[in-house]
Design a protein around this nucleic acid. Structure first.
Lengths: 110, 110
DNA sequence: AATCTTTATTGTAATATTGCAATATAAAAT
DNA sequence: ATTTTATATTGCAATATTACAATAAAGATT
């Protein structure tokens, strides 16, 4: 059929996948990195920085926001976007747990 | 057009996105978790474990392999798949770096 | 109030992903 | 040698994603 069978997986699996999926596009990785680099973080800057049209960037920002990776505050007619540390931390902890398990069992196979 | 403009981003951004994208599906997260849980890691087991058809799982395994998240050894007529710790570590380090930067600048905006 | 600036939304075309039935491949067991 | 077991590939339909032009919305500036 073509649609992800979300309902067959745990909510944790789905939520990790959602975060990872949002990180799964180089433009969104670049946006995150840019938001980290500058102190003021306004969409217009990003449009000047990246080789993508303004609607495309707006859409990528929306996806990052839906996944909880960034948050945005309205400041006058501009919007201040910045990285949401909680979601980064969640993903980080997940990978740390995997990493620890790998070290513990030290590859019985492969 | 619809195709990701890979060429406009750095190879690091693309490679992080590739790893994240492979993690960006709950079935692939579940496969990774299953590979971690069991000691023997053979595709047939995964088919019994997950509510997806064998070709679908085979395809997900291929994508995880292409992204470097798992590696597979042929063992007789079965294949022993397991998590590739190097790629997990790369993603982990990337997120750790972001996390540290966030802590350093402690949110000048938002 | 008219205009400018900044961001979002809509519509649409191109492309990619997801999922599976059917089939292929290849080693193991009989 | 045939059959069984384990995995991969092909082909295809359904759906999702990516990108952008055109347009809308909403606060700021004049």
């Amino acid at each position: 059929m073509g649609a992800t069978k979300t309902e067959h997986f745990t909510s944790k699996q789905n939520s990790i996948a959602t975060i990872a999926k949002a990180l799964g596009h180089p433009a969104r990785v670049a946006i995150l990195e840019y938001l980290m680099k500058v102190d003021s973080c306004i969409c217009g800057d990003i449009v000047n920085e990246l080789p993508l049209a303004q609607p495309t960037i707006s859409q990528h920002l929306k996806e990052l926001k839906n996944a909880g990776l960034i948050k945005g505050n309205i400041e006058g007619n501009a919007i201040c976007y910045c990285v949401d540390e909680k979601t980064i931390a969640r993903m980080l902890q997940y990978l740390e747990a995997i990493n620890q398990k790998i070290e513990m069992k030290k590859l019985k196979c492969c």
